[in-house]
Amino acid sequence: MMRRRARSMRRPSAQPDAPMITDALIAPFTEFEFMRRALAGVIALSLGGAPIGVFLMLRRMSLVGDAMAHAILPGAAIGFLLSGLNLFAMTFGGLIAGFAVAILAGVVARVTELKEDASLAAFYLVSLALGVAIVSIKGTNIDLLHVLFGNVLALDDQTLMVIAFNATVTLILLAVIWRPLVIECVDPLFLRSVSRAGAPAHLAFMALVVINLVNGFHALGTLLAVGLMILPAGIARFWTRDISAMMLVAVLSAVVSGYAGLVLSYLTKIPSGPAIILIAAVIYLVSLLFGTVGGIMRKLFPGRHLEA
């Protein structure tokens, strides 16, 4: 209702054609504070999450992110059970649950023969069951929807600060563990033979995965939080062979998806979370088809071979 009135009031003074487009692209954000907040939140999410997604993909752990997102649920649910839809309780609970699962899975993988994906699958299934059980003890359907899908349009100042803080921590910590992380991806045996940094770097990285999932959880919910991490990483893979450039492309495409998704959800009835992920999916499809590095069109029409 409010949106309609706001726009119809502006319309008489607007010029035809070009200003109409500006209207759709910029006006929602100049007009409404909740849209500006959402945009800020999405940008912060992209800055932290997209680089993490790139590493998840390069370490063949794309689905691990998904598993971890489920693992967060019981912690957030316990926080919800104790203090309702309280930001800090739910964030804290999610962090604890996520860390517990990540560390347990990592330790089990390092100490036993079980591979990390297998041990993670075991732990996340347990915590998913636990989470659903806890939520159904107290929650209503609306609460459940909030937990599962989040609401980027309802970010308050506190939540926004938490997201920005987490993104900052992510970028700083990522800079610290960058070298061991990269070497462990390419040549784990070498890192093991020259340094003890491998295991701590890996655990720190898993911690970052959890932090960013909790981050995304507020805006996009448990189910879609991984979307802004993995889809941009997949997009980046189709455009460059250099890891630093990959980070940039991933962050950029995440920001663009976030912005365009917000505009899309403003103009249509699509909720913001799915709108953002759908835009990312469209960019992913385009990259898949036309990407310069291993895109389908490149594979089908590679051009004439070179002389040497």
Binding site: R179, P180, I183, C185, V186, F190, V194
Partner: peptide, 28 residues
């Protein structure tokens, strides 16, 4: 090692890869 456990699909250049040999002196 006999069969280096190297992920050859990882996006890293020969220069950067060889540069990791300086790890002991350069560290983090």
């Amino acid at each position: 090692p006999q069969s280096a456990d190297i992920d050859r699909s990882f996006p890293i250049s020969v220069f950067d890869f060889v540069g990791t040999g300086l790890w002991r002196s350069k560290g983090l």
